[in-house]
Every structure is written in structure tokens, then in C-alpha cells.
């Protein structure tokens, strides 16, 4: 098996073999490639970056070049997939709440991962340093970043509640995608990256 980014490895454990998956912002197609080889998963990726489109095609991953902010209705009918996955992308879309609803329109379950803005180092930088936080998970300057909708675990869970979305599974890890007892006890303070699996309530 090829080396897989650890958050993708966690996600792939969550996905039942033989299912249909849509990967939003699929990047170079590693997750779908892995899922199709190891878990007999059939699916498509959506991606906007031209180089990533080429990488996906090289891997034999089915990819549609499309802007996520244009929505999914151009392409996908209701209940077309078992899972709709979006890794490290929800903070970069224009309307995260609309996106979550769209994910659960076309898929039975959704999986998202995002950098946790509630991590203690972000809090410290803002509270004591008085400047916008930067970290391993959020390396960009505030004025030059695709990340326009940062949130904390608490924020995300509050939005799910509002949208009547049931959270089925949650995992928090550091940027090396390791977890420890502290993160389990105080996830919103100690977790750098959050992973969620959810479905319509």
C-alpha cells in the first residue's frame, strides 16, 4: 500500500467497502485512488486546479473540473452517493452551510475535515499576541489565504445542530495526524485538525 496522508487514512477506515464516494476538492486524487484499490470504492472527484486534474487523470481517478462554489446541482441528483467527502476545504468555500446541505442532498453521509481555529495556539496568538493566528495547520497570512471561513469544533457542531445534522463520528488529531488522551479530553483546545462523519438528522 502506498503512503496515505494520515487524515485520509482515518477517513478511509470510516468508509464501508464497495460504497460510492464523491470527493469534493479531491486534490491529486490520492484518497479516491486508495479507496478504489483498497476498499473497492467507486466514485468521482471534483477539483478546480488544472495540475490536480492532470494528477487525477494520471492516477486513473475520475475527476470533474468544477468550482465547488458553483454548487453540485449542475452534476448530481439527490442521493447519488453513499458518502460525500470534503477534506481541508470547507474553510475555503463561500457558503459552508449551503455546502453541508448540498453534501447531504447528494450523499447519505458526509465526511469533512478542517483546521480547528479553537486550538490553544490560535487562541493565545489572538489573545496575547493580538494578531491573526498562524500555525502548521494554518500557515497563510490573513491577507493571502484561501481560508475565508475558519471555525472551531464548537462552531461546526453548532452549525450542524442548526441544520439538523447528526454527527456520527468525531476525531481530532495534530498536524502529524496523531491523537492523544489530551485531545480526547479537550478536543476544541488541543486538537489541530477535526474530522467529522455526519448525516441528515
Amino acid at each position: 500500500m502506498r503512503e496515505l496522508r494520515p487524515d485520509l487514512a482515518i477517513i478511509s477506515e470510516w468508509i464501508e467497502p464497495g460504497s460510492r464516494v464523491l470527493d469534493l476538492g479531491c486534490g491529486d486524487g490520492k484518497l479516491l485512488d486508495h479507496l478504489s484499490r483498497e476498499r473497492d470504492v467507486d466514485g468521482y472527484g471534483l477539483e478546480i486546479d488544472p495540475d490536480n486534474i492532470v494528477s487525477c487523470i494520471q492516477r486513473g481517478v475520475s475527476v470533474i473540473q468544477s468550482d465547488l462554489d458553483a454548487g453540485l446541482s449542475d452534476y448530481f441528483d439527490d442521493n447519488s452517493f453513499d458518502y460525500v467527502v470534503m477534506t481541508q476545504t470547507i474553510q475555503a468555500v463561500h457558503y459552508p452551510s449551503r455546502m453541508l446541505s448540498e453534501m447531504l442532498r447528494v450523499g447519505r453521509e458526509g465526511i469533512v475535515t478542517f483546521p480547528n481555529f479553537g486550538h490553544w495556539s490560535s487562541r493565545l496568538q489572538l489573545a496575547l499576541g493580538g494578531h491573526m493566528p498562524q500555525s502548521r495547520a494554518l500557515p497563510n497570512e490573513w491577507y493571502d489565504t484561501p481560508n475565508i471561513h475558519l471555525c472551531t469544533l464548537k462552531d461546526f457542531e453548532a452549525l450542524c445542530h442548526r441544520l439538523e445534522i447528526d454527527i456520527l463520528q468525531r476525531n481530532v488529531v495534530d498536524t502529524a495526524h496523531r491523537s492523544n488522551i489530551g485531545m480526547k479530553l479537550l478536543p476544541n483546545l488541543l486538537g489541530e485538525i477535526a474530522l467529522y462523519r455526519f448525516r441528515r438528522g
Partner: peptide
């Protein structure tokens, strides 16, 4: 099975 590229 389909891939789609929208070339700038």
C-alpha cells in the same frame, strides 16, 4: 466513468 476538463 467520465473525467472532465474545462480548459482555460
Amino acid at each position: 466513468t467520465v473525467s472532465y476538463a474545462e480548459v482555460e
